[in-house]
């Protein structure tokens, strides 16, 4: 985080977002602001509505009510649900990123790693093969994938490498906001640690804002500044990550924290 964030404006303003599936609640009346450089973790168990909320903010789902305002690069706040589809999709592949739990959902498995990373650059009009390839190799390096794997397909990569490739693919356009859905979900513990450390470094270095959905409180502690605890579609507690984890107030958060296995 840079030192001068107190006076400037939030990047995302979420107000009263609800999503109902018929009479069932996906998430209800969620409001918060996300600031530049801030990482927000949304935690809760399966079915708590955390992924529904993430998808509502990332415009992958239309909320039943509420507004989401995003501060564009020209400093104007725009309601992302009132944008034209062309503009919204452009925003999503330039200024935003989305990291899926399953890398296959976020990668093109049948094209090379280099093309996976380069796709966003080509989508915004880069037309120099050599430069696109150089950027791809540079980003593979930043996510600790050797440059000589640039022509390999992700099918030949391990789970951890695929996830790192997905991250590189998202970051190549230098987005300001990244959504992550259980980014360490399917990975071995040691692979998780490496990925988290990498994410933590990149977030700090690039000044990224991120919203990370996870059921893993250790992940939340390691990479987030702020935490939102959800249960049955509602936010039950919200605050500074170490405060929520070390002095949980809501009964559900206390249960969650006391359920962690200690090693």
């Amino acid at each position: 985080m840079s030192t001068d964030t107190i006076e400037d404006a939030p990047l995302l303003k979420v107000a009263g977002v609800s999503k109902f599936y018929g009479s069932r609640i996906g998430c209800e009346n969620v409001s918060f602001e996300l600031w530049p450089g801030e990482v927000l973790a949304i935690v809760g168990e399966s079915g708590s509505g955390k992924t529904t909320l993430l998808n509502c903010m990332a415009t992958r789902l239309n909320p039943s009510s509420g507004t989401v305002y995003y501060r564009m690069r020209d400093e104007t706040f725009r309601d992302i649900y009132r944008m034209g589809e062309a503009e919204r999709r452009l925003l999503m592949r330039t200024d935003w990123g989305f990291v899926h739990q399953n890398p296959a959902d976020g990668l093109r498995m049948t094209v090379s790693a280099g093309a996976n990373v380069g796709e966003r650059l080509m989508a915004v009009g880069e037309r120099h093969y050599g430069e696109i390839r150089a950027s791809a190799i540079d980003w593979l390096g930043r996510v600790e994938i050797a440059g000589d794997r640039v022509d390999d397909e992700p099918r030949a990569f391990s789970g951890g490498m695929r996830q790192r490739l997905q991250i590189a693919r998202n970051l190549v356009t230098r987005p300001r906001l990244i959504f992550m859905d259980e980014p360490t979900g399917g990975l071995d513990v040691s692979v998780q640690a490496r990925l988290l450390d990498l994410l933590r470094g990149l977030v700090g270095e690039l000044g990224l804002s991120a919203i990370v959905v996870t059921h893993d409180l250790a992940v939340a502690r390691l990479i987030s500044h702020r935490m939102m605890v959800m249960k049955d579609g509602r936010v039950v507690e919200h605050g500074l990550t170490d405060r929520v984890l070390d002095d949980p107030q809501a009964p559900y958060t206390q249960l969650l924290v006391s359920s962690i296995l200690q090693v």
């Binding site: 062309a86 999709r89 592949r93 989508a123 696109i132 390839r133």
Partner: peptide, 21 residues
């Protein structure tokens, strides 16, 4: 949708793959 929104980055992905291979 890609045609409608003129999202043609993918076309160059195909050509990129050609050159890479």
């Amino acid at each position: 949708k890609m045609h409608a929104l003129e999202e043609y980055g993918l076309m160059h992905v195909k050509l990129y793959e050609d050159i890479a291979r």
